[in-house]
Design a protein around this nucleic acid. Structure first.
Lengths: 331, 331
DNA sequence: AACATTTCCGCAAATGTTTGCGGTGGATAA
DNA sequence: TTATCCACCGCAAACATTTGCGGAAATGTT
């Protein structure tokens, strides 16, 4: 602490100016090989490390990205974060991670923290009822790229990276039809979220064509336990659903807890299909058939896009990750 | 970007000195209420925000903690991170998160990144075969607290926060004995890890007293799929185990996949007990009985300890979070 | 020998804040 | 009146780095 090496200390030792030392360490062509060597040797010896604060102040760059998610402890987000972190580090960037706890105020707070710590870019997945519009537009205006993923704003004014939500939901619906299920229970998340709307609309659109021979019951559940509750209720009735569709891992977990507590067996008594990150479905017996939403790949795309933006500002873009059908034994 | 508010700009507008503006915003007693008011008003109007880089440079503090884990995408670590993040933010700190990918080199890299970005403190869970000793001792020496959690160094020279590993393993062993299981298969993780050693030793110690009436087969598995493999092999033999113990969620998942693919039913044919974070066991049917290792609570303890260290340096301390037995239906 | 060019390096400003110290003007006390 | 004190404020250094510009010495060119 007391004896941190600085450019100045090196320069004094070698009877050079600070600027020469600085340039020597950066291989500036103005400096002779000889002094470069001497400087570098001493720098190594003194364990010199550039003071990030000073560099940041001078260059007005921090080499840090902000990453805001509703929650870290989530199978989708944690793999997303993992992917972003990997490639960020490879490119000399660090990640400040903030969680909004599904609270719009918290989210605004987090955006402000990003602003204060002057990050070079922001990744964000919005909470329901987000009202942080002015905050992130201000980022954009001041030239700091904001990349939205998963839960994105409705309009087309920003960089967004999403799953192919409609494609996934369409695949799901078509699969259900293909298996000739007539009584379908469909579990969706918070209806305020664009992701929910997209999946629901695409899902229903497919069934609209089926001339009402199929009964589709939509339920909106805000949590895993909520899903468990409605499923328990539904399967206890005599006219219980033949099939349960879950738009997320969270809902799938709730549904499966309910089914596991019942006497019903999958897929004989009731079949199950989900949109999922892929980890959870493999834990059940039988393994659940799902349409994959790959958080890791989404993260890779997001950081790639961010690095592009670091290079040179490109026009706003919407990236969509295609869906993939993974066969299990639940349907 | 071009028009960021600074102390200087405010001071020019009001015909004051920079220092007066600075002090006014900080409620320094030297400044009159009148000027304070004027300064604050203008600051608000101009949307002044202190330049973090400059503050850091001047004060030599960053209000940032580094957090290094083997992997983010992990049910234990992500809840740990979530807990730390919550309380860090409440106290004005941000979190830089780095993953070591079970690679000692990566881990050293991460420590260096923490050093370069001059974090105010470090949380770290070590990878197997970690050789970053010099790195983190250097942190300590330069007055930057390092708090180890979960996977900690063997010696007692550092702040550590762990589960009550021996207690958990002891409870597990005693439970197995209580249920009169005679052929036990025990799955442990990487034997190089102190956490594995602690759990294994405590586990075996209990059985040592049982005069060899119980057969305990220890297996070390480095991954979920490795666990799946050894379990599949074991239960296919005619003298298959009556019970499977898993020291972690990861191993439990592998074991359960194997059992689910077999015709064996739990707990009739084979019983299961795990040490777990608590999320995974609830997904199976029947729910798995487990001894809880609570990542979230561990995180709360870790950040609390860190904040204590920020206040004033206290002597090295080892904190242990007691274990809790949670009854499921698998035993 | 005079001039031009290259090679190598230092000066000083600039980034935005914090903070020790000193200074001014006015009120109060002796 | 002079000394004392307080309330209020500014000067300037310091934090460590980057970078435009200019300049001296060495080398090359006529």
């Amino acid at each position: 602490m007391g004896t941190q090496a600085t450019l100045k200390k090196i320069s004094v030792q070698l009877n050079l100016s600070i600027s020469t030392v600085s340039r020597a360490l950066k291989n500036h062509p103005d400096i002779s090989e000889n002094t470069k060597r001497k400087v570098k040797e001493l720098a190594l010896l003194m364990e010199y490390e550039p003071n990030a604060y000073a560099v940041n102040l001078r260059t007005n760059k921090s080499k840090v990205f902000g990453l805001i998610v509703p929650a870290i402890s989530n199978l989708f987000y944690d793999s997303f974060i993992a992917a972003v972190e990997e490639d960020a580090r490879k490119n000399g960037y660090s990640l400040i991670i903030l969680q909004s706890a599904d609270d719009p105020l918290q989210e605004s707070e987090n955006l402000k923290i990003c602003k204060l710590s002057r990050v070079d870019g922001v990744f964000i997945s919005l909470v329901p009822d987000s009202h942080s519009d002015q905050l992130y537009t201000k980022f954009q205006e001041s030239g700091i790229p904001v990349i939205f993923f998963d839960k994105v704003p409705g309009n087309k004014l920003f960089d967004t990276i999403c799953m192919a939500d409609d494609e996934a939901a369409t695949i799901a619906a078509n699969t259900i039809i293909k298996y000739k299920k007539k009584k379908v229970m469909a579990l969706f998340g918070n209806p305020e979220l664009s992701i929910t709307k997209k999946r629901r609309d695409a899902f229903l659109k497919v069934f609209k064509k089926e001339k009402a021979t199929i009964k589709v019951d939509i339920h909106y559940c805000l949590s895993s336990s909520a899903a468990q509750k409605v499923v328990t209720e539904a399967i206890s009735k005599k006219s219980r659903p033949e099939h349960i569709f879950c738009m997320s891992d969270e809902l799938l977990i709730g549904a499966m807890k309910s089914i596991n507590q019942s006497a019903l067996s999958i897929p004989a008594d009731i079949s199950v299909l989900a949109i999922s990150n892929g980890f959870i479905p493999g834990l059940f017996k039988p393994e659940i058939t799902y349409i994959e939403t790959n958080g890791y790949e989404l993260g890779k795309l997001a950081i790639k896009r961010m690095l592009e933006n670091m290079e040179n500002k490109t026009p706003v873009k919407s990236i969509i990750l295609p869906a993939r059908y993974v066969q299990g034994g639940s349907l």
